[in-house]
């Protein structure tokens, strides 16, 4: 089994390499002279051509594409992410500030969505073709089809402004740095972030459960005299979980995409709002690093899918190093 995981892990390296090349080349296609994005226009007008040429040389813009990629990826390996073009701050520091905020938001959103998505899907399947199932399915369709920002705005209006239960945005108030203080800021954005996820997971869980409940071994479990709770959970849900685990992780990119919208709506200082800011300001170094980080997260998630499927399914776990009969 460890050999299997080792191979999967090693396979990530070439994937990451290819993605980094795509990101690098893709952003070379952005129109405009990089110099004009580095130096403010009024200062650029004052500079003579010699100075501009010198700056070009200093920034490495005269090097070949290959050399520039090498330098970029080399610096990243050394842990130097470069400087922001708009704020001129070190990207390392900016990310160190913002990444924990996004991780916190995404993790709570994911946890919340997984619990409720699986729970609602399970109930919906067990109560198939009853009013409970119909209402949950309808809510699920609403959850999937209404855009997140709309839910976000509604939530801000209702809970933030009308009821004044929760803050309308931000991550922490003055002097409120403990996690406990920050929770009130996390409730709305993580909940809204989770809605689409809940709806998606619910649909998959329902489908997977119904699929499993039609299997012969469920009938066998009943024929042994097991209680319905036992049949539904131990044999039904346990088997339904295998494909769902994969879906949970395969859907992570959508969660990441969701944070971009949610952080903007809630004015939440994370990676998502930073990315929006960087794109609108053509702050390419930040856009490149952020995109690369997202790719890393998604690749790691796909690795996690392999590990989890193997842990949950003996056919995969044992099939890799033992011959099946």
């Amino acid at each position: 089994m460890f050999k299997y995981f080792g191979i999967r892990l090693l396979a990530l390296i070439p994937k990451l390499f290819i993605i980094s090349i795509i990101i690098f080349l893709g952003l070379q296609l952005v129109p405009g002279d990089p110099i004009s994005r580095t130096v403010p226009p009024d200062k650029l007008a004052e500079m003579d051509e010699e100075k501009v040429a010198l700056l070009r040389e200093k920034l490495g813009l005269n090097d070949t594409l290959f050399e520039r990629y090498g330098k970029w990826i080399g610096d990243i390996f050394k842990g130097d992410f470069g400087y922001s073009l708009s704020t001129h701050g070190e990207i390392n520091k900016i990310i160190a500030n913002r990444l924990p905020a996004t991780l916190e938001l995404a993790a709570i959103g994911l946890l919340f969505a997984t619990i409720f998505g699986l729970l609602f899907g399970f109930i919906s399947a067990i109560k198939q073709r009853t009013p409970i199932d119909y209402s949950l399915t309808t809510l699920g369709i609403i959850g999937i089809s209404v855009p997140q920002f709309f839910f976000g705005l509604l939530a801000i209006l209702f809970f933030g402004i009308t009821l004044k239960w929760l803050p309308v945005g931000g991550r922490m108030g003055v002097g409120e740095q403990a996690f406990f203080d920050r929770i009130q800021y996390l409730v709305l954005p993580s909940f809204i972030l989770g809605i689409v996820y809940i709806a998606t997971l619910m649909r998959y869980t329902r489908g997977s459960m119904l699929d499993v409940m039609g299997k012969d071994y469920i009938k066998v479990a009943r024929s042994k005299g097991l209680s319905e709770v036992n049949v539904n959970i131990k044999h039904g849900f346990r088997n339904a979980l295998i494909p769902i685990m994969v879906i949970i992780i395969m859907r992570l990119p959508y969660l990441v995409a969701g944070t971009v919208i949610i952080e903007t709506v809630f004015n939440y200082p994370g990676m998502g709002s930073m990315l929006v800011f960087a794109i609108s300001g053509t702050d390419l170094p930040i856009v490149m690093i952020t995109t690369l980080l997202i790719a890393v997260v998604i690749l790691l998630a796909s690795f996690l899918v392999d590990v989890l499927s193997a842990l949950l399914d003996p056919r995969i776990r044992l099939g890799s190093d033992k011959e099946g009969a």
């Binding site: 012969d216 071994y217 066998v220 042994k224 346990r238 088997n239 399914d313 003996p314 056919r315």
Partner: peptide, 14 residues
Amino acid sequence: AMIFQDPMASLDPV
């Protein structure tokens, strides 16, 4: 007690 038609599908794979 009961035994069923398809033994391949009668056992819970996990």
